[in-house]
Design a binder for these strands. Structure first.
Lengths: 294, 294
DNA sequence: TAAAAATACTCCATAGGTATTTTAT
DNA sequence: ATAAAATACCTATGGAGTATTTTTA
């Protein structure tokens, strides 16, 4: 029901290829070409630069894309609104979520949400915090889930889950009964996330505040995947600082064990983000659901 | 470019008549009927109740109308945005304005605005404050101009002009040189606006605060039109409390004269209203223009 | 020369029109 | 009986397809 030209444009702008957009839309490349030409004619602006077999968005195309997302979202909200009038709950919600949340929190959340609202289709886009915030600002997604909060203007932040950076290790390891302090931790081999990871950033920040730096510790590896670190710890005798949300299942299964710390506690919050003043009923539905079920 | 079905729906919902909508849209009644039927089919909801030869909006129709207005406004904003990229200033702005402002303030404002931005089309809807606020909430208009401010949620208020309720009379009348106090005013024949008028309300409120009521005065007429009162005063020897904005031209022409008052001063402010968090560039353009030119 | 966009053409679905019927006051 | 919406039927525009050509990296 979204004016078909706009849908074609959105997909083409995402794929930056008429041919690939055509495939995604189950139509032919000439049909896509014609839609874009017609849009360009109606709007009186070129939407794509054609450099031979590559295309890119013109400034006008960038503008149109944002409006197209907003219009698409309005149609989605409309369908949901009308379905509510019929005592149904049908709709489409576009979510973006940063890596850790996508892997460890969102699956459980969406499972419950979908059980409660089986007729609400969810589309999840993954990316780092920066990308998700951009996507919210561009109206590419209705709602985002990110770690931490950068308080950017135009975006509404809403905390929904407390996370904690915890120290974990192989359950077979012999660790002192009493909580570890940072001084003692120096003796143990430590694995940390790669440079650029949000988890690593927040650890570095708190270590610094406590008067330490990574170089004070016995860091045997930097690794670019939480999942990879967990696999490693199950085999090797090493410790790692990881997000509690990412290890709690493994801890429950006794694949990993939590190690109490004495002078190191890092809390952070996962946040919903959505455009300021958006008034999106589907977003409200999700926020309420999470509020009452988590 | 707005999906044609939506445009047809909007007009039909406004006229509450397929036939009249058809006339407005320069199409035939069967064409309108078919558009509505198709919309109803696509959305899976009846949009109009048909009671014989009258139609009314169903709840689903009411919902759709609001979304349709928002989508229409987005298209208008899009056109404006794209025209700005071409260093033009083309667009369509939908304004609503309450009676006094429509008659005495808006014409001058729009004249200057249109001279500065000749390619921005303006559509003005007239109504009382309540109706204009509703229209903003329903997204029927992009921006409204009203007298006073009721601070309703979902609406952003922005003062743009100070108005004052002043005492005016026929220039030929002999009035004491020094400012009139309310006690002296009792001697003069007075004309006031009809019950329900915003101007009258605010006068009543201030009189009450000063310990008076209308019954204390020599009210010879209640009249439902500011213009009518002014015409009357030019012929009869009577006084009236009117909005300064509505009499200043007549005062300048010496058709009416201002009478200074001593213990009675009523200020009120004209306000722009628009949906909270709207981010409408055409609205911003108008607000800026007024800010720098008035 | 290979990959992608543009063009030429054909076909059919549908938006819109005219003429008429149904419906409810 | 009248005024408005619904229906039937026809036409023409344009959206989508196939086949082919053009473009440039």
């Amino acid at each position: 029901m979204l004016a078909s030209g706009l849908k074609v444009f959105i997909v083409t702008a995402q794929k930056l290829s008429f041919t690939k957009a055509a495939a995604e839309l189950y139509m032919t490349q000439p049909a896509v070409t014609k839609h874009i030409h017609k849009l360009e004619q109606n709007l009186g602006s070129k939407l794509f630069n054609r450099h031979g077999n590559k295309i890119s968005l013109t400034p006008a195309g960038e503008r149109l894309l944002q409006y197209a997302y907003r219009i698409e979202s309005l149609y989605n909200q409309l369908y949901f609104d009308l379905s509510q009038l019929k005592n149904e709950q049908k709709g489409t919600l576009k979510i973006g979520s940063s890596t850790t949340i996508t892997q460890y929190v969102l699956p459980g959340l969406l499972h419950k949400f979908s059980k409660r609202y089986p007729d609400i289709k969810i589309s999840v886009m993954n990316g780092n915090t920066e990308k998700i915030e951009q996507a919210v600002l561009k109206n590419e997604i209705d709602i985002g889930l990110i770690e931490g909060q950068s308080k950017r203007s135009g975006i509404q932040y809403k905390t929904f889950l407390k996370d904690e950076i915890v120290l974990v290790g192989n359950p077979k390891m012999t660790i002192a009964e009493q909580p570890l302090d940072l001084e003692t931790l120096k003796k143990y081999p430590l694995v940390i996330r790669e440079s650029g990871s949000g988890t690593r950033e927040v650890i570095a920040y708190h270590l610094q505040k406590a008067g330490y730096s990574f170089s004070d510790f016995n860091i045997i590896m930097e690794y670019g995947s939480t999942q990879g670190i967990k696999s490693y710890l199950r085999q090797a005798e090493a410790l790692a600082f990881l997000s509690y949300q990412s290890v709690k299942e493994a801890v429950k299964r006794r694949d990993l064990c939590l190690i109490a710390t004495k002078d190191f506690k890092v809390e952070r919050f996962f946040n919903f983000i959505y455009p300021e003043g958006s008034q999106n009923k589907l977003v409200d539905l999700l926020l309420n659901f999470v509020h009452y079920n988590f």
